[in-house]
Amino acid sequence: MRGGVVSELEVLPQAALEGLGTRPFGVYVHVPFCATRCGYCDFNTYTAGELGSDSSPASWLDGLRRELDLAARVLGGPPPAETVFVGGGTPSLLGADGLASVLDAVRSSFGLARGAEVTTEANPESTSPEFFAGIRDAGYTRVSLGMQSAARHVLAVLDRVHTPGRPVLAAIEARSAGFEHVNLDLIYGTPGERVDDLRASLDAVVAAEVDHVSAYSLIVEEGTAMARRVRRGELPMPDEDVLASYYELVDEVLTAAGLRWYEVSNWARSERDRCRHNLGYWRGGDWWGAGPGAHSHVGGVRWWNVKHPARYAAMLAEGRWPSAGSEVLTEADRHLERVMLELRIAEGLPLDALDADGVREARAAEAEGLLALAGGRAVLTDSGRLLADGVVRRLVG
């Protein structure tokens, strides 16, 4: 296998497999189905009307089982999964039985490590007390609920269909079903969102007494319905200064409620409440991404699957690897990613990961109040978190 992008990944080079199991290892499963398409979303998702009769959850699950079995063979007896994350799309549309089948497929091909973290995303409207009880019995340990906002008019701009109060109720139902780890997702900076709207959303999050919150500024992605509305002048582009002030408000309220930041966009009540799967990404771990459009990384090799569910299932039915392409990361690529990802977490980046120019830039950033240098590590300050991407660019030249 040569460097650069290739059309199909036949085997992983031996160098990529060396050390497998010594780094964090997780499995990501992509569920491509959604009931409706949100205007801001650019993920690989499809409504029933967009798929037609060519694809179904049953054919997708059959393809998933085939891919996971193939993965186990390619990795030559992989380590058991320390984390599993079922994302989408809307995994909760599969129902508790469908999600149980997904986890059974992972167990069959990889096995689960003792104390494995098993997360599924869920849309609050497609959950119920029975749903949460069912996935808890199946072995899921963590639920991530898409809340986005508690303001009805903000949800309307985002094309979210759930009612404002449903995410909090769903979080309470999940906790009642025995889930210790429940996350609520927020999006801030939606056109028309006022500071009082964001405060109301944060108050609702705090009232839900969840142990984890993810909060992201709205990004208008090219190719989305929202981008077309912005281009036509129907919606304003989010203002960077407003986004910065909203981030500061999010951090202030969550910190006061006992949720501490551990990654620029993530807060948790304690270290044990952090999302271990995402930490595996940020700390340079390995993961197999299964499902249409899913991305994987093992030992410095990255690849991504074909996007359409029908083609994905057909390729696997033919015994073919469903890869659309791959790349071998250069040392420079891996260095950039390490700085970019590790600097975003609360423990920061070891200074010895930087070259001499990077260390000089780190000291300059410290003088500007963007980094704190202590114990041989560089950690973003509160001000530095607002400018994290710029700080990374400085450190890598």
Rank of each mutant, 00 (worst) to 15 (best):
V5K: 10
F25M: 03
D104I: 02
V298C: 07
S7G: 14
P129R: 11
W60N: 02
P191M: 04
R23G: 10
D286M: 08
T163C: 03
A71D: 00
V182D: 13
D42L: 07
R272L: 12
R228Y: 00
D251G: 15
D357G: 11
Y262M: 11
V6I: 10
L198A: 03
D333R: 13
S323A: 13
H277F: 01
T45Y: 10
D104V: 06
H30C: 08
D357W: 02
A324L: 08
L235P: 15
G21P: 07
R338F: 04
L202A: 03
G52N: 02
V264R: 02
L395H: 15
G358K: 06
G134M: 10
R23P: 15
W288D: 00
S59G: 03
G63R: 03
R272V: 14
D286W: 01
G178N: 15
L155R: 03
A290R: 07
C38W: 01
T119G: 04
H162L: 12
L68D: 06
R393L: 14
A174C: 08
R2F: 08
R260F: 04
G189A: 12
S128R: 14
T255D: 01
V118G: 01
W267Y: 15
T330C: 09
A35C: 01
S55M: 06
R363H: 12
V168T: 14
D203R: 03
R166N: 12
L155K: 13
T190S: 15
A256W: 09
H308L: 02
P350H: 05
